[in-house]
Design a protein around this nucleic acid. Structure first.
Lengths: 203, 203
DNA sequence: GTCTATAGAAGGATAGAC
DNA sequence: GTCTATCCTTCTATAGAC
């Protein structure tokens, strides 16, 4: 039955996503995924042939999700400052719903750098920069964001939203020990990060 | 021979460190470590009994290295701004020599949160905050760094120096594609990050 | 202390029945 | 399409000779 096929294949994919994010490629067991999906181990091979193919399917989906999030901000008709606010609000909200993605993604990339080529096409930073420059020539000049400093600027933005999630287990532990609430910290970070970055470039 | 014991045990430890950082706990093979050390696989068990014990030894050393780096800045007789500059210079220089540590550390923590308890004693942030408050009461007030916002502030500092290394394979790839040099970017980041943070809190 | 040989377990993958 | 049974490889760990 086609209906059942779809259900099973999707269930496998979702279970694989959960298990791979939790354990990583090396730590994940096909048995774990089968158990999570409530099906037999050999069905995984029936639908995806090998562990590697299953992993690649999951990884590509996640990579796409992560990077498609960076582009839409450019389409908005907003000032540069408003775009910074918009980005942090959207991106951190997305990560709140998917807190395990940054750590999973960065780690798998480090373990297997060859995988970058598969999705680096999703990212055309030269185009992103050209667009940004066309939209905000005056503001960029005012803030001293040039072709020289744009990597510093962009990675600082990414760092401000991604790092709290990449290190969330550690950060949450330390905060708990000190009487802070991690979820509250994240919620407030949407505004804090925007203020922080805007102040930083205003000088 | 005691001389030989020490040499072999150290060689194993160093090889294990290299392999674990590269492959992670789950991806590392005892055979890889033995090959790297140029010795027989069973010698690993002779000195460390199990893979887990060997890993724990490596992990604890690395965790110590990473966190002891945060404290000395407090001993210096410097203004808050100078301390921020001092920290980025020292910490990024350390990470230049050990670029794989952040990714390895954060990932293993996420995979096995229970490990945090083993070294969270290295970190007494309440004491750190009390010291900082005593040393820079006026400046902290001026910059609006309070007990409320200190987690935001501290994680932003950490993010600015750690994130470029945690995501270095990805960042370096994108930069190479765009004609930037990663090492140059990192070298310049020591100053950029300090300027960025100081401007951010000055408002 | 270091090696060879191998036990014992686990995991990925396949064959074949239904 | 889904299951049971099982193969084959890989990996950790140990036994035992030197």
């Amino acid at each position: 039955m086609v209906e059942n096929d779809k259900q099973t294949e999707e269930k496998i994919f979702e279970s694989a996503t959960a298990v791979f994010i939790d354990k990583g490629m090396d730590g994940a067991r096909m048995q774990d995924i089968a158990d999570h999906a409530g099906i037999n181990k050999s069905l995984l091979h029936y639908y995806y042939r090998t562990k590697e193919r299953l992993f690649n399917a999951v990884f590509e989906k996640i990579a796409g999700q992560l990077f498609r999030r960076f582009a839409p901000v450019l389409d908005e008709k907003l000032s540069l400052e408003e775009k910074i606010r918009f980005f942090f609000r959207e991106h951190i909200t997305f990560l709140q719903k998917n807190p395990g993605l940054p750590s999973f993604f960065l780690n798998e990339i480090n373990r297997n750098p060859a995988m970058i080529k598969k999705f680096i096409r999703h990212i055309d930073i030269n185009k992103l920069w050209t667009t940004l420059e066309a939209q905000h020539k005056e503001e960029l000049k005012k803030y001293n964001i040039t072709r020289e400093t744009v990597p510093q600027f962009m990675t600082s933005i990414a760092a401000m939203s991604v790092f709290p999630f990449a290190g969330r287990v550690l950060i949450a532990s330390i905060m708990e020990k000190m009487g802070y609430d991690f979820d509250d910290y994240i919620e407030k970070r949407k505004e804090y990060a925007a203020d922080f970055v805007i102040s930083a470039i205003k000088k």
